[in-house]
Design a protein around this nucleic acid. Structure first.
Lengths: 141, 141
DNA sequence: TCTAGGACCTCTAGCGACTAGAGGTTCAAG
DNA sequence: CTTGAACCTCTAGTCGCTAGAGGTCCTAGA
């Protein structure tokens, strides 16, 4: 038996994940249900803390929930080959690059609006025209 | 009276917004309720089509719903000054630039994982380590 | 040892922005 | 006139939480 060091509030402070969110993660099976005290309160160990930190970090990096579950499943088989996780990271990297490209195009579009924009009234507002007419975009969304 | 040219399905085809979504937009007051036929079906005119295209385009560009409402409100006062819309675009542009910066940092982090990653077993997987330990990130999420 | 009050418990409901389905009605082409 | 695609309303579900109600437990200080 590992020592049960943390209450849910302490775990929240250590992981940066809010208390109700931790309970939510438990309810959807992303983290295992921890043991309880006699008074029915959750008590976590260091492994639970690490797992939750992993989740918090991966979420912040934009990995979707389903991929997290997959990674955690893989991580539990410590002798499995790493290729599966490798593939998830590659996929995620490709997604990130696509999003960067799209946002860059969008940035051009937005700054183009401002450049062609003289202070007049709404009636001749270029911004509204551009927004209304997708034909004027060089790229697709 | 304008001619009422389009059924909701035609409007969907012309705007790229799905039929249930058009009804949803009406329910939240983003678009006005159009007139109906004797049989209670919605009929739209060209102005409604343009308004919906505007919405579709702005949504695709990431403008939040609340800002859309603001822009549409402003656009209805055709003699109002353009500065308000200008400000919305500038804010949006700043957000886009922030997101690009974050995603670029993330891309570095992800590709760094792959570089330092040799094909082994999960037990010594760098990716999982990096994900578990946020300290290893040069930036914050 | 008692007590106060902060932290914990479960449960339900709500958010945004839709999407899906049930069950029924209308429109328009042939 | 018939047929079936498109329309109608309504409810409920999605994701990833967040907020609140109403109640219990733990622990530090007196």
């Amino acid at each position: 038996m590992r020592p049960l060091d943390y209450s849910i509030g302490e775990l929240a402070a250590l992981s940066g994940v809010k208390v109700p969110t931790i309970r939510y993660y438990e309810s959807i099976g992303l983290i295992p249900a921890p043991p309880r005290t006699g008074g029915n309160q959750r008590r976590y160990d260091a492994a639970a803390r690490d797992r939750l930190r992993f989740i918090a970090h991966a979420r912040a990096m934009g990995f979707p929930m389903a991929e997290l579950k997959a990674m955690l499943r893989i991580a539990n088989h410590r002798d499995a080959p790493c290729d599966d996780i490798d593939a998830l990271v590659r996929t995620r990297l490709a997604e990130v690059e696509t999003r960067i490209a799209r946002l860059t195009a969008l940035r051009e579009e937005l700054s183009g609006m401002l450049v062609s924009h003289r202070h007049g009234t709404v009636a001749d507002c270029r911004v509204l025209e551009v927004l209304a007419d997708h034909q004027q975009c060089a790229h697709e969304h």
